[in-house]
Simulated assay, not measured.
Amino acid sequence: MKKFNTLLEAVEFAVTRCNSWSFATSNDNYDVKGLLVLAETSDSENPMDEDSFYVVSPAGAIGLCEDGEDIYWLFLTGSSTDEDLPTTLQTASQIKFCSKCGKEIILGAGFCGACGAKLN
């Protein structure tokens, strides 16, 4: 799971994983352009404090970590429903994902069980 200091940085990374999101607590939907505009506006109007950061899941869901531990998922992808999104950063660091397909992998495995990619 990658960390980002601004929502715009998180969105720029998330768009490499998917192309549409829904807001976690409503039915608002966003495409790439809409989420980029929202992120730029949010960053300029509400800058993050130094202890907070954003995270992006392997499938492209975007979460906010205000206390360095708890993750509040803000933007979900269509595949987020299949993804086991962690609620804490500690849990997230224990889960390993394939860098090619984003699926959870078995610790110690040499290849991804979903796509067959060689794992580091």
Rank of each mutant, 00 (worst) to 15 (best):
E83M: 15
P86S: 09
D43H: 09
M1W: 13
K100D: 10
I71F: 15
D28E: 15
S99H: 14
F4A: 08
N120F: 14
A10K: 05
F13P: 00
L85M: 09
G78D: 09
V32P: 00
G110L: 13
C101Q: 09
D82W: 09
E50T: 11
E45D: 13
C101N: 08
V32M: 05
T81K: 12
A59Y: 06
T6V: 05
T25S: 13
V11D: 00
D84M: 11
E104M: 05
I106Y: 12
D67K: 05
F75M: 01
S79G: 02
M48K: 08
L76H: 04
T81A: 10
F53V: 03
V11E: 00
N19S: 07
K2F: 15
A61G: 00
W73L: 05
A117L: 00
G63Y: 09
A39D: 07
T6E: 03
N27Y: 03
L7V: 02
A39L: 11
N27H: 07
D28K: 15
G116F: 13
S44C: 10
D43Y: 14
A92V: 06
K3G: 02
K33M: 07
D70A: 09
D84S: 09
L85N: 01
L38H: 14
G78K: 12
K3M: 13
A14C: 03
G60D: 04
D49K: 02
S57L: 06
K96P: 04
A24N: 06
K3T: 12
A109Y: 04
S22R: 12
D31F: 07
A114G: 07
K100H: 14
C115S: 07
C112M: 11
G116H: 11
D67F: 11
L7N: 00
T6I: 04
C18T: 11
I105P: 03
S44E: 13
K3S: 10
C101P: 07
V55H: 09
T81P: 00
L38I: 05
E40M: 06
G68A: 02
F111R: 06
G78Q: 05
F23P: 00
K3A: 10
L8A: 08
Y72I: 11
W21T: 03
